[in-house]
């Protein structure tokens, strides 16, 4: 069972036996991996009929629907982890989805392509055309409407929204990017594990 490298990184953030909701779970490859290798209790939300059928074939429980109506179904804190993998640029209201994720889950894991990657910057500078994200090969007119944002943008968003960033993983292509500097320039993909500040346990007095 081989997963895409960004999905593999996500699995490393999830402890065995957790309750996991995968938003936009596609054909269910990540969820199936988590169910089989990490014994998670997995659920998915997926818009496409083909995706839902593929998930059911893998033996997964998936609700068809868009993310907002799907998330609205679930009681608060009903999952340990809510995953949003490579989907945030395509949702109508990214901010609201992140907050809904952190209502329904104790933790949210968001992975996204970094438009701050140097090739994207160079592409716009040299060609005058909007760059595709490093791992989105289709041209702009063939993809669903997306919002381009960078690692720096997302970090600022988290600070402004008072979200705690628990873990950050960066990839350059298929390889981990572990240097502390120049992430926004050299990483193609970022994975953030988030928490709501108020959902944290109160800190112990010193």
């Amino acid at each position: 069972m081989i997963l895409r490298s960004d999905l593999q990184s996500i699995t490393e953030l999830i402890p065995n036996g957790s309750k996991v909701l995968d938003l936009g779970c596609g054909d269910g490859a990540l969820l199936e991996y988590l169910v089989q290798k990490k014994q998670v209790r997995g659920r998915g939300i997926e818009l496409s009929e083909a995706g839902v059928l593929a998930c059911v074939k893998r033996g997964l429980s998936v609700r068809q629907g868009d993310l907002e109506e799907g998330l609205a179904d679930y009681p608060s804190a009903s999952f340990d982890y809510v995953i949003l993998s490579q989907t945030l640029p395509f949702v109508d209201n990214p901010g609201r989805i992140v907050h809904e994720m952190l209502r329904v889950g104790q933790q949210g894991i968001v992975s996204f392509s970094n438009w701050g990657y140097w090739r994207c910057r160079l592409h716009l500078l040299l060609t005058g055309r909007i760059p595709q994200a490093p791992d989105l090969p289709q041209p702009w007119y063939d993809t669903p409407r997306w919002q381009a944002f960078t690692i720096t943008d997302f970090g600022r968003f988290c600070r402004q929204q008072n979200l705690t960033i628990d873990r950050q993983i960066y990839l350059a292509g298929d390889h981990p990017y572990t240097r502390r500097k120049f992430k926004n320039l050299l990483a193609t993909t970022a994975i953030f594990a988030l928490k709501n500040r108020q959902s944290q346990p109160p800190s112990m007095p010193e």
Partner: peptide, 15 residues
């Protein structure tokens, strides 16, 4: 489906 989720049942749904 919403009600079943609220009851924390295991649900698959396809339209």
């Amino acid at each position: 489906v919403s009600a079943l989720h609220a009851a924390e049942a295991d649900v698959t749904y396809l339209d």
